[in-house]
Design a protein around this nucleic acid. Sequence first.
DNA 1: TGGTGTGAAACTCTTCACAGCG
DNA 2: CGCTGTGAAGAGTTTCACACCA
Lengths: 266, 266
Amino acid sequence: MVAQRGRRNGSAPAPRRAPEAETAGAAEVASTASAGAHSARAIPEAAVARLAVYLRVLSAMAEQGATTVSSEELSTAAGVNSAKLRKDLSYIGSYGTRGVGYEVQVLVGQLERILGLTRQHKVAVVGIGNLGHALANYGGFPGRGFPVEALFDIDPDLIGVPVGGVPVSHLDDIPTVCAERGISIGVIATPPTAAQSVCDRLVAGGVQSILNFAPVVLQVPEHVEVRKVDLAVELQILSFHVARRAADEAGSAGTTADGTKDVVVS
Amino acid sequence: MVAQRGRRNGSAPAPRRAPEAETAGAAEVASTASAGAHSARAIPEAAVARLAVYLRVLSAMAEQGATTVSSEELSTAAGVNSAKLRKDLSYIGSYGTRGVGYEVQVLVGQLERILGLTRQHKVAVVGIGNLGHALANYGGFPGRGFPVEALFDIDPDLIGVPVGGVPVSHLDDIPTVCAERGISIGVIATPPTAAQSVCDRLVAGGVQSILNFAPVVLQVPEHVEVRKVDLAVELQILSFHVARRAADEAGSAGTTADGTKDVVVS
DNA sequence: TGGTGTGAAACTCTTCACAGCG
DNA sequence: CGCTGTGAAGAGTTTCACACCA
């Protein structure tokens, strides 16, 4: 029997509202709120990610003085095909001119609106190790709109030290500091063992969105959104593709140039 | 040369007409029966990512002395539901025992095999700024299997300086050094402007897989696999969800300022 | 008995292809 | 005429539910 790891350490009594029917019911990470009668998720999750890319490309184009773009141009620059781009844009409305294309400024404005970039989202970074340091130093983070306003670590030597202009606070102060400063996005860059506890404190501090760099599956109340960036998984996916390719080639050629034995399955 | 698989239905011989330069995204993963060996119907891209997660969870369980797991336990720990887990595992074969579960060691072994972790994948990190530094210092990267064996930057002050035990080389030497050391995975942590050029050199050095942290769409030959990690996009997706939630709440409270066309709604 | 493995249904996302408008 | 916007077809994923067997 596998020892179950401790789960959420209790504090806030999770205001659950959709009891799982399944045994153990792993939270369905469904992108949207459950079964709401209304609250439609108009825009597909996958499309949202691309909208952010379009915005970046458009901003670059605007800087170069472009005033209009066709779906063809924009899609090429964004690395997708034009049908997908038009479909994606159609989710946010009709801002193009048939026979012409899109006005860059208009589209930029609409994308910013949809992505919620018309207001600032204050960011807290937890875990000021190598990665946390790097993140904190982005100072202002990707573009404006995401100012880093709080840093946390557990190392006494770091407490009080300013990194990228913001002094480091102790993990224990996460709830109060986050609440005080109105942090809305928490970034977890701690070792995996600390991640869940840090996450709980962020939630206690009123943080609604979490970007998790720690290789753990976080348990959160359903009103909190979590995105995961997992380096190990990314590398392993790449590894998988290398292996698959090697397998394919071995199948057809059967020779290894490098002297390394190819391990790939029979 | 890997045959392009057409997966259109047999009755619509639509001729491909646009030479769309796609990213090496999730385009083709098929490549199935070609090599005719034994194994599998291709594993869905989405499942591969999860297999890596299962592997991590299983490794942790193994360390704690677990010898068997049920799909229920494992799926809970991995944050998915058990049906999905079983389906995912079924892609790699039948290694479970009905009425009992899976043997942890067996599953770990099979997952490592499928993910190509039975051999090492040497990694090069390009761009030794804050992020690159952090990556280089992971030293050995996530677990073993991904040793960092080359570092590159353009800053003369950095050349020759060892970071995490590996001396930094110049960008110009990327092709030769990568070829010499047999690098198979390149990690791009440079400013966006340098990314494409770095990418080209990595490819010239024989690198087959690239993990790109720079916010640009890379152009690569089709035999090269690219994965993107985009901080700005992640934050903007979180921002979108915060905005949507805010909109929903405002909407239900009847307070929406209807100045702008509002998204959403069923 | 209890849990795996899997066909088939349900759902989501992508691509096609063309109507319609500037 | 050229390009957007979109219904519909297609491909990919997830979920269901149950046969099957250690």
